[in-house]
Nucleic acid binder design. Structure first.
Lengths: 219, 219
DNA sequence: AGATTTTCTTGACAGTCGTCAAGACGTGCG
DNA sequence: CGCACGTCTTGACGACTGTCAAGAAAATCT
């Protein structure tokens, strides 16, 4: 019998590598397809992304998707987890190596803007999926999980910022995340829908706003 | 010749009412369909809403849509403008009739939560469409227009709030909107995806957060 | 009343979607 | 080599989409 798509994603019994050699071919291909899917989703949006489009932007044909994934739903959630792995620690290096509150604030604000510049479509996808989860229960679990991790990521920044400033945060983790995320999403929208000539300006405005907001997060 | 769908929406030359009688039948039906479309869109989301679904939740059959609207795109943008008309002045009565800063703050925070409770799906739709505008240029114009009006609506609240407090706002209009919108969207997400038993709690948390945020908007 | 126009339904079209089955290609084992 | 297995392509299916045309039904006018 052939080896149909696997359900979850653990390196357990892999049909291609009985000797547990390396990142088994299977897992490799899965990630390759997930990568291709991420790019397509980020460009076209969740609503207009078909499996054929995803495959067309990969070295494979449309049928192969169902060889590695049991359904579109599994591919999408696999993608999102793949994306998560690379993104929820984005500011940890800054948190770890900054030595003053001012430095942390500066580098954080700068990186926040930079991540829009360099990974805009990926963030568009994230907000798209987060919204879709309000209509599609299948997405809720993975979305809420990542949302929680993003909140923790922001909280690591803010609490370290407070520590370096010798003060205590004046608002809780969730509120911090809500406000910063609001400003971020607002800038992303302007960045994505505005003219190219305005893009850098939008980012510098975001940086400035983060600079004015952060001090007010301390008690 | 039959009278095919009209393009924009002005009470100009209406084929059904040559004598300019009342909200011409044409306009009535258009609004009726727009209303049905809004409900469907709010329930199913933009991605999964078809013209047949919209018609099925109205007293008409699917073919009638193209009699009143030239395309799906025109129906959608018509809907959104219809929605806008009823929503961008939502807090104006509170702004006009509150006599102290504390009263304005309380009533605003309460209404903010109440509008999720009473029109949750409609807000879900708004965030959905706003996100789609990042992928679909056809939505950008109407989305940016409404977004600007929402910002102004919030600014009317905040600047009146400052005035009543005898102080000046410490942040600009756009930043206010970004932060409050972030908190609002966060609560909406929790409200929409969480269990029914948590809904009221989510709303009271939002109210509390608005109460802590607003004073910090004053200089 | 009949004639005419407006309104609405029905059914079809070309296209796309997720899914799956049948088989071709390639590689490594016995 | 031949055979078996993992991999991938091709082509098809039923369902669904936006769009439109033809005509039935209803309203209006003369």
């Amino acid at each position: 019998m052939p080896t149909p798509a696997r359900s979850v994603a653990e390196p357990a019994a892999d049909p291609a590598a009985p000797s547990a050699e390396r990142p088994s071919k299977h897992e490799d291909r899965r990630e390759q397809l997930a990568e291709s899917a991420l790019v397509t989703l980020g460009t076209l949006g969740y609503a207009k992304t078909s499996l054929r489009e995803i495959a067309q932007r990969s070295p494979f044909s449309h049928g192969v998707v169902h060889y590695y994934f049991s359904s579109k739903e599994e591919l999408i959630t696999s993608c999102v987890r793949h994306y998560k792995r690379t993104c929820v620690t984005r500011y940890d290096e800054i948190v770890a190596s900054s030595t003053t509150a001012a430095e942390l604030q500066s580098r954080f604000a700068e990186k926040l803007a930079g991540t829009i510049r360099e990974e805009g479509p990926m963030h568009q996808l994230w907000y798209d999926l987060r919204n879709q989860s309000m209509f599609e229960p299948a997405l809720r679990e993975v979305v809420l999980e990542i949302d929680g991790q993003l909140e923790q990521m922001i909280w690591r920044v803010v609490s370290r910022y407070a520590e370096l400033a010798g003060r205590a945060p004046s608002v809780d983790s969730s509120t911090c995340y809500g406000m910063l995320d609001g400003l971020f999403a607002q800038s992303l929208l302007a960045w994505a829908t505005g003219p190219d000539t305005e893009r850098e300006h939008v980012l510098s405005v975001l940086t400035a706003r983060v600079h004015t907001l952060m001090p007010s997060l301390l008690g």
